[in-house]
Design a protein around this nucleic acid. Sequence first.
DNA 1: GCAAGGTC
Length: 829
Amino acid sequence: MELIITEKDNAARRIAEILSEGGASVERRNGVAVYRWGGRRCIGLSGHVVGVDFPPEYADWRDVRPVELVDAEVVKTETQENIVAALRSLAREADRAIVATDYDREGELIGKEAYELVREEADIPIRRVRFSSITDREVREAFAEPEELDFDLAAAGEARQIIDLMWGAALTRFLSLSAKQLGDDFISVGRVQSPTLKLIVDREREIEAFDPEDYWELYADLAKEAGAADDEFEAQYFFEGDDGTEQERLWDEDEATAADERLRGATSAVVESVRRRTRTDDPPAPFNTTQYIRAAGSIGYSAQRAMSIAEDLYTAGYVTYPRTDNTVYPDDLDERELLETFAGHPNFGDDARHLLERDEIEPTSGDKQTTDHPPIHPTGEFPTELTDDEWEVYELVVRRFFATVAEPATWAHLRVVAEANGCRLKANGKRLVDPGYHAVYPYLSTTENYVPEVEEGERLDVTEVRLDAKQTQPPRRRGQSRLIETMESMGVGTKATRHGTLQKLYDRGYIEGDPPRPTKLAMGVVEAAERFADLVVSEEMTAQLEQDMTAIADGEATLDDVTDESRDILKRVFADLHDSREEIGKHLRASLKADKVLGPCPECGSDLLVRRSRWGSYFVGCDGYPDCEYTLPLPNRGEPMVLDERCEEHDLKHVKMLAGRNTFTHGCPRCRAEEADETEDRVIGACPDCGPEEGGELAIKTLRSGSRLVGCTRYPECEYSLPLPRRGEIEVLDERCEEHDLPELVVHNGDPWELGCPICNFAEYKARRAARAIEDLDGVGRKTAEKLAAVGIESLDDLRTAEADEVAAEVQGVSADRIREWQTEASAG
DNA sequence: GCAAGGTC
């Protein structure tokens, strides 16, 4: 029997399909899928099935001095026991094996790990095949002429594993021990996470150090003398700077007002020059992971969410592998054929047919060509049931593919320079003459700037003059996709890990919000690392490692050469760290506290801190506790983030509550509490729970945490309550709900929101939320959710408790098995 | 309880 080993199940299934010409069957070993046909078996791993670690005697952080990890042995442990067991048992039955993992360095290492597991069981020939996309031709050609594993390349990967573990673990333990942070709140550093964190911290330092400067810009509205009213356009004042370049900003107020007055003295301007240009705007390159994340970010998806959706679409077979650096379509991809599959599609058909009219389909390509996976593109398999988010992302991938085979766009640029009373004015117009690829890819801006056709020497009316006082702005914080792009350009992390690294920084309490802002703890960690272990916060560590890995792969260095040198460097770092342990610990503890301090306690003058209760909720408490028991409540939704902004009255920092899309600013917690104390409850009717027996009434209440609700006046004996929005004035109308005998409410926060009867409103809200929860289940689209609602399934609970067979009989197109899958998912979530 | 890299 010949055993074929791939990096993942998906690849195993597709390779089996190709080599067996569709004749493969699936069986399970230890729960792992094995594809069989003829004399062949094919198993997919799950990436690395073994990992590096220290022997168990190094496990206790308190027992082992961190520096000892530098010379500790590094052992391999099985991390995916089911898969390893399945692989071993298959190996015992095989008379030869073929490693078919991904065609990249990490794939070579994963292949070598499989090689060693097989070797422990059987002394059989083990060969290697390499292909860059799982297509019929590439796979057949690769299997026709198997090659050998590249052990040097695999050793390069192992060197990375060892160095990352030893630096990461030793320094993480050192910092955590020094700050006495040993539980879930340990303080981590690493070759990838720390330079990424420094990138964010450095930008924050620039922002903090920024000193804004005043400047002025001068504008005039110009209009053709006999033209239509909408022929008016804006032109900007400019002058020649000392270096001969065009300048728009006036840095001196007197000069600015002088120019303003001069221009105001002009009633007309004379066109000095008109320049027309045509510019082509080339369609974008195929999607690699980073550019995909960026595009998904521009339509509102976080990096993590974008990757998670892409992975789901990939597993379902609708798009190709989402983790790739490649921006060049492989020769095997027939773009015309793929377009043809879309020609009959209800959503994409028109665009696909239009693109097929081109004589020659020549796709764009990016700078980077790799051997592991093609750029992300649709497979041509059409999805049936997608959630709204999945559909939006799927459409993005389809349209990006369309864009890469579409024509360039053409813009007409028109630059007009005019002179008015000695002032020179310019206007740059642009018009999209031919939308080209924008017609099929509507995600990039096509904003035009209108400037009418004018002639040289033509006289224009000056209809308005504006002098804008402005200030230079600090650099902007990078958003998630910009950070990922920067990490890529620094060579830090990989296509498969960068978004996860950002998530890790959030989880470790190093960054908050979006765009991410570093915490004081992050500032402290980066400062400590810069002083004592500069290498671990520098991108050079990765650059050096890459060079060393290349040397190992080329046979110019050995794994031991490289790891021993790294050990020496790390030992020198520890020699410096040793004496400063106390000082570093104090600094880190001060940083940790700084993230939580709001300001002085009104009762004892100690610091008020954001704290967490035993039940997990947040509140503001005094650092003087238990001597001082002063507290203030915080909203019960989201994670509190302390802002720099301070309340003038109470000298307390403002608090923002981070809750994804529902993030809001709470402000000064003392102000909120005092406002609540001063707000009278407004009675609006009888309590439906206890009104008849106990005479309880419903009132609009404001809590000290800032929440508002309609609740029973007998609270806490009666806990009946309905939520109200946090913001906006609540108006009570005379109209009453017939069913509940309560007044209709209107919330004034921007556009008036007619909330109506609070009981009806809450019922509707719950129904909407339930519908959304059901739609979030894997493979339940809106249509299915509607069908389920029609048979009375309106919440996850309804779904969980329903009889799958009965529902299947009533709902067309949904099997009982499918419903049981959803029930499992609903119970798990 | 450490890292970073695969993959789910």
